[in-house]
């Protein structure tokens, strides 16, 4: 009986995991397959999946076309890197202050930070465009970084605050006994032991900024089009270049996937520690 029970338990766990993996990977696999087929195969009814038609032509075409995928990737890289870096620097200091420095009205400040996340983008986009336009920040990297920081910072602060609160107070008291100021304690004691959550949060912020589309489409024009806009431009009113669109999407997902692979240990540790300690 226990053997059967163990077998069934394992079977259902594996079945569940395989099903989840297939569901998660299905769209990704389909995107890769689509990117390797010519438009004539994709527009056939039913879709012609003959392996003989497989081609990398779409990948060459997206680089050759004038739709600006390369400049879009560069713009996205600049914007996402700066957003996550600045977000981590400011957000970690703010989170530490809110977690440890007994600031007056800290709970109100936290609620106000959270409240900024409750406005749908469509509500603020026109006032935002107006301000950005008057300050000459439309279609600039700086402008988009500021906007992205406005919604990434609250997330960073809330995630890191939870982690900093879980750092043993004894460590900080020991630093204080040795004469460390609050900033020195933060810089030399708290930050070094917080690398996993910092990396996890940084990667999360990078992905958010990398994938963002709505504000990018309104607040950019020509020079700072991001990768997500370049990908969307393959969809027209009268013709959608599915193969090239998906080839662009595959290329645009490479930096994010690479980031996740490189920092996977930190990401896993960060979220696990956050989950246990917070």
């Amino acid at each position: 009986m226990p053997i059967i029970q163990r077998f069934l338990t394992r079977f259902f766990i594996r079945f569940g995991l395989i099903t989840f993996t297939l569901l998660a990977l299905g769209p990704v696999i389909w995107a890769v397959v689509t990117s390797l087929l010519p438009l004539s195969s994709l527009t056939s009814h039913p879709i012609d999946l003959n392996p003989a038609n497989v081609t990398v032509e779409n990948y060459f075409l997206v680089f050759a076309s004038s739709r600006g995928l390369v400049s879009g990737l560069i713009n996205s890289l600049i914007i996402a890197t700066f957003t996550s870096a600045v977000g981590l620097v400011i957000g970690s200091m703010a989170a530490y202050a809110l977690a440890r420095l007994n600031m007056p009205n800290s709970s109100r400040i936290l609620m106000m930070i959270l409240a900024t996340q409750m406005f749908p983008g469509i509500v603020i986009v026109i006032p935002l465009f107006l301000v950005m336009s008057r300050t000459g920040l439309v279609d600039t990297h700086f402008g988009l970084i500021i906007v992205y920081l406005s919604f990434i910072l609250p997330i960073v602060i809330w995630i890191l605050k939870g982690f900093f609160e879980s750092v043993p107070m004894e460590l900080e008291r020991a630093a204080a006994v040795d004469g460390a100021s609050p900033f020195q304690t933060f810089r030399y004691i708290v930050l070094p032991i917080s690398l996993p959550p910092l990396f996890a949060t940084g990667v999360f912020a990078f992905i958010e900024a990398w994938n963002e589309f709505f504000f990018a489409i309104i607040l950019t024009r020509i020079h700072v089009k991001t990768a997500s806009i370049a990908i969307a431009e393959f969809s027209g009113q009268y013709q959608t270049l599915y193969g090239q669109m998906l080839a662009s999407a595959v290329l645009a997902s490479i930096p994010v996937v690479a980031l996740a692979i490189i920092f996977r240990r930190f990401i896993l540790e960060g979220f696990v520690e956050g989950a246990i300690k917070a």
Binding site: I126, F129, I217, I218, I229, A232, S235, G236
Partner: peptide
């Protein structure tokens, strides 16, 4: 002549945002 050619599905929303701002674009 400077052309701005956003994706078709966003063309209407983009001009709506531009007009609503009251700014020359």
């Amino acid at each position: 002549v400077t052309y701005e050619a956003p994706p078709w599905p966003q063309l209407h929303d983009k001009m709506a945002a531009n007009f609503a701002s009251g700014q020359y674009v």
